[in-house]
Amino acid sequence: MTLLHVDNLRVTFPTRQGPAEVVRGVSFALGRERLGIVGESGSGKSQTGRAILGLTPPPGRATADRLSFDGIDLCRATPRQWRQLRGARISMVMQDPKFSLNPVMTIGRQLIEAARAPRAEAHDRAMAMLDAVQIRDPARVFAAYPHELSGGMGQRAMIAMMLMAEPDLLIADEPTSALDVTVQIEVLRILDRLVEDRGMGLIFISHDLRLVGSFCDRVLVMYAGRVVEELAAADLAQARHPYTQGLLNCLPRIEGGRRPLPTLQREAGWAL
């Protein structure tokens, strides 16, 4: 079943040199699966994620031939419809919990605020959610302010908050990049379980090709605002586009190998 349709999505920012198109005609369809969007900085991957939620920062503008979520036309959605979707049916997790949690509210209050349910019920749900994201001492975290938590804990609290509303679609923009590798794997396990158990759709935006390749079902590779290659994560090693191959090859490996590392020779044709 297709949850999200994106057809010819474009995001443009006005600059002194004229409009700069940072996303240039991205199209894909998402079911209840893990879709990875990979690319380097400036490839437009984050702006793609934001545009789906209608969060393109002004003066930027997002347009699409078709942008629909579960039958709802997002291009023509009213502010009222957006309020019903955002946080409730589509959620987003950002990279750094330090900037996306409210610093003057306890984690518990923020979770309850996200629940939109009677207080007692919301409290129980919040505790259950903190438990579900593998926080060992939910009562302490519930009463804590964001600065009292480590990065890994904060990011788990963030995910717990996004999941309070049991969204159908979660857009995770570099959700684990600020975390240590061992914590990163734990957070991915939580996301994985949510996709498996609840049938949530997940868009996983990352610069880490190796991580996306091992975690997602399908991968879109973005370069200069375009999708240059779409492939099943399992076939990443057989990538055909020279950019994807270059990205894979320039990573150092524990097993060792080439020295000097092969570098990426960009071709002007890729950006056309």
Partner: peptide, 28 residues
Amino acid sequence: DASIQAEVLNLLDRLRSERGLTYILVSH
């Protein structure tokens, strides 16, 4: 970015062999 990382690592590698430098490299 990964592609820039490869260039900088290659540069550090070359400088070390050319100049006989000693490195202590901290990384996660």
